[in-house]
Design a protein around this nucleic acid. Structure first.
Lengths: 343, 343
DNA sequence: ATGATGTATGTAAAGGTTTACATAAGGCCC
DNA sequence: GGGCCTTATGTAAACCTTTACATACATCAT
């Protein structure tokens, strides 16, 4: 059957000697069709190699079987594993994944909006932490959407991610348990919800340990390696130094380690460092980084499951599913060796 | 105009007081329509917020504006950067990217084949190095396709990637220049075309240096970290050891370094190691890995450009576009310190 | 004035589905 | 045997475009 044009439902109907309506029913509502007929149809499908034309189907149904996934940066090491989870779950339900990356450019976001408007995607997964569509869009027009990895700032969109506060708490508690009392928090941008939440974990841990706010050092940056390096430089300008650096993410932590290394310090002997995310590099840098693991594949899977549920129910839930963060202990933390406060 | 159902071409036609054919022409063949009319249509489009329904368009045209990208593993560190290149180029031409990963499972491949058969994708980008569809598919049915990163084994599909042979040659020449004479090549599977080609570079370099085949050590594996570690163990069983390990990819090189480290050797003092790919980790491991860089974004961009060209021309070119590999020198190579052959 | 040529627009069909509605047949009850 | 319900199938419309073909009008050469 190596026909040049693919078989249509009509070809199947002709061979099975039934109407096209029956063929459609045999495929999508098999219980509505007599056993004998279903058999004939299935044979005809096998003979012709028929597969339903997704375009025609989506057109008729007014809804596609694609999910648009928008991320600021496809290359982000966190991204790919979540994508695996998303993709697996989507495929299992007959959906495909359409991907786009905005590079934090609103113009780009708008271009992807077209995929939505033109009915090419039935749902939206957002990695961006923000609706990347400027103000042209009212949320009303958006298809069912789920934020992932980073809570969505505007728009009141359900979110699946790690419990940032609890994760940060685990990190700070480890540092505390090792005996650290002067712990710096190296954050990224205050506009990121993840920052705020991790910071909350940091503060809560320090509160519980009875460490006064005066003894806390909090810096902001942009979450890059460079930003971590820069934070170290800033801190060395001051008259007090922490004994430990608790970083908002692994990139920052790597930057901190680079900065400290450049000044000739040894980690964890001289300073302890923790990260957050457990990116693949974390295990390769030296020393291997003690950090908080994001269950990325699970996050992807659950986010997609939630979206698919929204898609069938239509119920506009505003949920937040928080997954448990795990502390992964490697070699970047030890007890404080000396008190840097007075040097 | 926050209407619940999106505007159709008919809404636009009514407002602009023209026929739907004219609207369609005003959009797609503006020169065929009078200036005054075009103006009216554009205004009507602005008022209604109309965007073309991609489903209807694709159905009518018999061709979608999606490109299917199939990779064995989305999480592969090589993948994401190529994807960036692919995506940028696609978007610039109004195409979207549909992604799938097979995990080397033929069943999975078949599932993606459905996207193709159901007309949801106009073209195919293959990362898999092999047509992942078992034998059910004759190439005739495949849409325009381009292999990327890994030459496609079966199917005679155009390919865009790095020049493996030249890259390997650069690595072996560096090792030779440092004075190494006993260089082991740690490969992966002989079925991978990339292996064969890199191996050719290795042999060519050694030939040129007048090193006889007896003095070459070649091992095979599966390209994983574990496989690199295993290769080291195997070599220590033998009575001759190389002074340098030239690895088919960075993963293997990392494994080799781990294996050597576990035995207490220092790199590059005791042994030199080179990789291939320049994955993001390569810079973080210690010592940072000297390797061959794949111009990933450029590969993606060119592959997509080629595919788009195929899509419009229809000309079934069987090309191979080989990009220049760059040697990136870090710290895993130095002159051989002693001769391990007789220990 | 006539016919030819060219330009701008309209009409209607086609693309492959799904599904509301119509029809037909079979079984059952009285 | 007639009416009624159930089950299985068919008919045809609708989803929204694009485009071949038809039409209408203007321009121009003769």
């Amino acid at each position: 059957m190596s026909n040049s044009t693919p078989a249509t439902i009509e070809d199947v109907a002709r061979i099975a000697e039934v109407s096209i309506a029956t063929v459609s029913r045999a495929i999508h509502m098999p219980e509505k069709v007599a056993n004998s007929t279903r058999l004939k149809v299935n044979q005809a499908i096998a003979i012709t190699g028929y597969t339903t034309n997704a375009m025609a189907r989506s057109l008729r149904l007014g809804r596609s079987n694609m999910i648009l996934v928008v991320a600021p940066d496809i290359g982000d090491p966190n991204f790919s594993n979540i994508l695996v989870g998303l993709e697996n779950e989507a495929r299992a339900h007959g959906y495909g994944i359409l991907i786009g990356h905005t590079q934090n450019d609103a113009q780009r976001g708008l271009e992807y909006l077209k995929f939505l408007n033109s009915n090419q995607a039935a749902g939206l997964i957002l990695f961006t932490g923000i609706l990347p569509f400027g103000h042209q869009t009212m949320t009303a027009r958006l298809p069912p959407s789920v934020g992932v990895f980073e809570p969505v700032f505007n728009g009141g969109i359900p979110y699946v991610g790690v419990d940032d506060t609890e994760g940060a708490r685990k990190a700070v508690d480890l540092l505390l348990a090792e005996g650290h009392r002067k712990i710096a928090f190296i954050g990224d941008s205050r506009t990121r919800l993840a920052y705020t939440r991790r910071r909350m974990g940091y503060d809560a841990g320090l509160d519980a340990a009875g460490i006064s706010p005066d003894n806390r050092i909090v810096l902001e940056g942009d979450g890059t390696i460079e930003s971590g390096r820069h934070a170290v430089e800033q801190l060395f300008m001051r008259d007090t130094l922490p004994t430990a650096f608790m970083c908002v993410n692994d990139q920052t932590a790597i930057g901190v380690m680079v900065g400290l290394g450049a000044r000739g310090y040894d980690i964890p002997r001289d300073f302890s460092v923790t990260g957050f995310d457990d990116v693949p590099q974390a295990v390769f840098i030296s020393p291997p980084l003690t950090t908080i693991r994001q269950p990325r594949t699970a996050i992807g899977k659950q986010a997609m499951a939630l979206l698919l549920e929204l898609l069938s129910d239509g119920r506009p839930t505003e949920t937040e599913i928080l997954l448990r963060p795990d502390l992964v202990v490697r070699n970047s933390v030890s007890a404080p060796s000396r008190n840097w406060s007075k040097r």
